[in-house]
Design a protein around this nucleic acid. Structure first.
Lengths: 137, 137
DNA sequence: CCCTGATCCATACGGAAGGATGATGGAATG
DNA sequence: CATTCCATCATCCTTCCGTATGGATCAGGG
């Protein structure tokens, strides 16, 4: 905003200068308006690109990524989330147990509770829903 | 562009009208310029948002899609691909059988052969690999 | 005409997955 | 201090999954 004010002031000053130098050459008011309009349309496009670009990036980036808010609102615990991610990578319960250094029953326990929280009955279903909710990548 | 020209013409006309009505009230040239500048800055922002938005969309879309070449080189048959896609959506073998109007053993037959072609042993693994190969969305 | 691959189906078996239930210890919260 | 939640493990039981094996039909290519 400060920058915009400065730019506007500078442009106005420049126009005044131009006005004094070329007014004698009978620049009509219509042409004058046209110049100002074209100029500030350009300024507007430039500003818009700057402002909107910043917003666009925010909306574009979270496309194939996880959504922290979705994770929190899912109610899944940290451990359940770990199990879920390994499930999504195609690991069996036993492989998950080995990788996390816990027993197979514990993996089943985690998986059962995460199924309940995601309201699904199968692991493939859980993975699919978790991805659609952006809980996992 | 045509629209822009029309809008500009309309605005200029309006300004001329306003000018004739309020010029007598000693509107300074600086204020006049300011109004025109602010107005067309707005027009510029609007134009910019329209134009840039269109370009952004084009660059965002081609991200999480299937690769036809990958499908062909995977060696999967059309039926196997159908089963695979339904697997990825979290359906059970029985649900897949119902949806495709075939028997459960047939679904198992297809799944077994697609496991072999993808060189995996579990459905979650198959889904994961197929997605990484862009065989399915 | 035979062979191959795709699609379809069946039976049977072992193993993995999922559900039910219960138990323990730790950490956090009120 | 009691309660609650998380994480851990266990056992029993049921269902689902994956594999093996075998067979049927049909289309297309050699």
């Amino acid at each position: 905003m400060v920058v915009y004010a400065l730019v506007l002031a500078a442009v106005v000053a420049t126009l005044k200068y131009v006005e004094y130098r070329f007014m004698v050459k009978s620049l009509s008011t219509e042409v004058y308006i046209g110049v100002v309009a074209a100029l500030f349309t350009g300024v507007g496009v430039w500003m818009g690109s700057k402002l909107i670009a910043a917003k666009k990036v925010v909306h574009v980036l979270p496309d194939p990524v996880v959504d922290d808010q979705a994770i929190r609102s899912s109610g899944l615990s940290a451990r359940e989330l770990e199990v879920l991610q390994l499930m999504a990578e195609g690991l069996s319960n036993q492989e998950i147990a080995d990788k996390l250094f816990i027993s197979l029953p514990t993996v089943k326990s985690h998986s059962s509770s995460l199924y309940a929280k995601l309201e699904v009955k199968r692991r493939t279903e859980a993975v699919h829903k978790a991805k659609s909710l952006r809980v996992i990548a």
